[in-house]
Amino acid sequence: MLLITCPYCGPRPEIEFAHGGEAHIARPQDPSSLGVEDWTEFLYMRANPKGVHAERWRHLHGCARFFNALRDTTTDQFVATYKTGEPRPDLTAVTA
């Protein structure tokens, strides 16, 4: 069971959370103005990387808030968690 650090509540077991798919995919301001390609890209296309993945989690059985996390999909280790609306942490800056 993963140990996930909610940016509001601190480290909690995975059973308190719900996964919310890839992060930083903002809903377009005016969807109706988008062409088919752009809308398809927003709706269906996901990165699915091998390595560090920015993803949404919700602390469903805690503060109930959504937040974002960087998780390495090859090791299941979390690199960082951060609040919704904050930019994706720059890992090169973290490790430097």
Binding site: A18, A26, R27, R58, F66, T84, G85
Partner: peptide, 13 residues
């Protein structure tokens, strides 16, 4: 409810 919270918290805060 989860979907309402999702849109409110992440799209229309």
């Amino acid at each position: 409810l989860n979907m309402m919270e999702d849109y409110l918290q992440t799209e229309w805060p």
